[in-house]
């Protein structure tokens, strides 16, 4: 009874639209056809977008985890009052819309950006060459990290504070070397959070397009942007946009599920 309102809302504004996406993706000019999916996997433009999205997300996930993990430990080790401050600070990039981040990076790394000019003054690099990198998918990686690293840190701080550190002492008493003890005793404890955190980074990177759109327009061929172009241009092929949307969701989910499977088994 109490769930009626939310059920209603989810039905009409979530289930129904998603059903439309799936339904329209298999509706050709004359009834049912799967050709749109075939094209998603055969046409170069689409295949490229899938590849780029994938590369982008893998890179951001990898770098975000690599940088976020030690930082999260550094924050965990700080005193509670400072930690409170840092937590608020970390929430800042998460509250920004993609737009803010895009513009922040333009004035930071754009061709007359703060860092670009700083570096050219210090080392005499070529500003244009340096800044053009911002508008490629590698540049997107750098921009995405701005809102992904805080996510990783937030997930991991929670994990660190649940670790029972006396286990480490116990392991040492039993004669384990410190670093080995860490990997054998502490790592298994934070692994679930590490998995959850990196899956989160991957999923967010796959789906986000605000920052990318604001930075490069439709200049970089990643899936969400491609869907947007396919849908908003006049000559659109909506069927293909829908198929791309379905593929995007499926690929993201599949990767996340597979990843968690593999890594929970391995150890």
């Amino acid at each position: 009874m109490l769930l009626l309102p939310i059920g209603f809302w989810f039905f009409f504004f979530l289930i129904v639209p998603l059903a439309f996406v799936v339904w329209e993706s298999v509706q050709g000019e004359m009834g049912f056809d799967l050709s749109a999916y075939a094209r998603v996997f055969t046409r170069k433009l689409y295949r490229e977008s899938l590849k780029n999205s994938f590369l982008l997300s893998i890179s951001t996930t990898f770098l975000g985890t690599l940088i976020g993990l030690p930082l999260s430990y550094a924050l965990y080790k700080t005193d509670p009052r400072k930690k409170e401050l840092f937590l608020t600070l970390l929430a800042l990039p998460l509250t920004f819309s993609g737009l803010v981040i895009a513009y922040a990076f333009i004035i930071l790394l754009g061709n007359s950006g703060f860092l670009t000019i700083l570096l050219s003054q210090l080392f005499g690099i070529d500003t244009l060459e340096f800044s053009s990198f911002l508008f490629t998918w590698r540049g997107l990686v750098v921009a995405y990290l701005y809102f992904l690293i805080p996510r990783m840190i937030l997930v991991m701080i929670a994990a660190w504070s649940e670790v029972d550190w006396s286990l480490l002492e116990a392991a040492e008493i039993l004669g384990m070397e410190r670093f080995r003890a860490f990997f054998r005793v502490i790592f298994p404890l934070i692994r679930p959070s590490l998995l959850a955190g990196s899956s989160l980074l991957f999923a967010v990177s796959m789906g986000a397009f605000g920052t990318a759109f604001a930075l490069v327009g439709t200049g970089v061929n990643i899936m969400p942007l491609l869907i947007y172009t396919q849908m908003s241009e006049i000559s659109v092929n909506l069927q293909e946009a829908n198929a791309l949307a379905v593929v995007l969701v499926l690929v993201t989910t599949a990767v996340v599920v597979l990843y968690e499977r593999v890594f929970t088994r391995r150890f």
Partner: peptide, 13 residues
């Protein structure tokens, strides 16, 4: 789990 672009294109249709 759900990219906004996907819900967006669904709502539009």
């Amino acid at each position: 789990a759900l990219p906004p672009i996907v819900l967006g294109i669904g709502l539009v249709q």
